[in-house]
Design a protein around this nucleic acid. Structure first.
Length: 299
DNA sequence: TCACGTCAAGCAGAT
DNA sequence: ATCTGCTTGACGTGA
């Protein structure tokens, strides 16, 4: 059971998601920015290793405009050695990596242009993981997409597009339940059809579910991940007190987290904390697991 | 140095 | 119609 946080570390004064405006695009600027981003990524991973945080989500902004037509630069080749170096560290540290393309990536869009752009962006994500030579247990997590007033047709479009994807994307893609269109049940049904792992998001599930027995959920989710995929990844968050339903907490709610871990027994997962203060909450979560003998066997 | 308008990209739901 | 949230502010021009 690895604990992680997404994309940004607030403690080390360096973030790996620096970008710039399309208008100011130049190769020099791209190289300079990516150099910074990769160096910061390295530092964040070092910090994580020292603190036993062995799960991390790499930002989609690592290579700005990587999938945009304006980018003709062969960043894959230029940064090949650096990527390999980072990848070697990840493997040596026994870390797990995920990525999460942002809201513009909609594989089941009704617009062909949006679908093509989405595929290009997914390709970029898989290139990053491939350049680091990470195994297929490093995943790219995506929601199923839009509803467009017809869920069945929209799911069919997802299936059609998925089947046409390059194997290197297919081998890394996992689907995540969202909090208002496609819930866990939808993901499990789709998973059965195209054999794709389901990444369970407990907070989305809390907001949007089918009143399932939670232990059954973990059981079914668990079955969608095979040996090559690694143990299942889970996104964990809790409600920000006093805020709109669905707002992610600033700080980890230790009682809720403990409760959550207890309920997932006996399954083993890697847990991504979608909590705003990032590494601070990860450190607390790791303490909880370390100090509870019941959780020992699942480490 | 700082204020502030704007930023590659989609979609749904609230106002 | 327009705004907001999503995983998250921050780029960069103009004064």
């Amino acid at each position: 059971m690895k604990i992680g946080y997404p994309c940004i570390n607030w403690s080390i004064g360096c973030k790996g998601d620096r970008t710039f405006r399309l208008k100011s695009y130049s190769e020099e600027k791209l190289i300079e920015t990516v150099e910074n981003n990769l160096n910061c990524l390295e530092k964040m991973l070092e910090y994580n290793f020292k603190n036993n945080i062995l799960f991390f989500r790499i930002t989609s902004d690592l290579i700005p405009f990587a999938s945009h037509p304006i980018c003709k630069f062969d960043w894959q080749d230029y940064f090949k050695d650096k990527f390999q170096d980072i990848g070697r560290h990840i493997l040596k540290y026994n870390m797990r990596i995920s990525m999460h393309p942002d809201q513009f990536i909609v594989l089941n869009s009704k617009s062909r242009k949006v679908v093509e752009r989405s595929i290009a962006e997914l390709y970029y994500h898989s290139e990053v993981l491939d350049l680091m030579k990470l195994k297929n247990d490093s995943k790219i997590q995506l929601h199923i997409g839009g509803r467009y007033d017809d869920k069945n047709k929209s799911i069919s479009r997802f299936i059609d597009e998925f089947k046409r994807l390059d194997d290197k994307i297919k081998n890394r893609l996992v689907i995540e339940n969202d909090d208002h269109i496609y819930n866990l049940n939808d993901c499990l049904i789709l998973s059965e059809k195209i054999d794709i792992p389901v990444l369970f998001d407990n907070f989305h599930h809390l907001i949007y579910n089918n009143n399932e027995d939670i232990r059954n959920c973990y059981k079914f989710v668990n079955e969608t991940w095979n040996d090559e995929d690694g143990i299942p990844m889970i996104d964990y968050s809790s409600q920000k007190p006093g805020s709109k339903i669905g707002s992610h907490a600033e700080n980890i709610d230790l009682l809720d987290f403990k409760n959550f871990i207890e309920k997932t027994e006996p399954f083993n997962f890697d847990i991504m904390l979608e909590i705003k203060n990032k590494e601070k909450s990860a450190l607390k979560a790791i303490e909880i697991i370390k100090n509870d003998v019941r959780f020992e066997k699942r480490q």
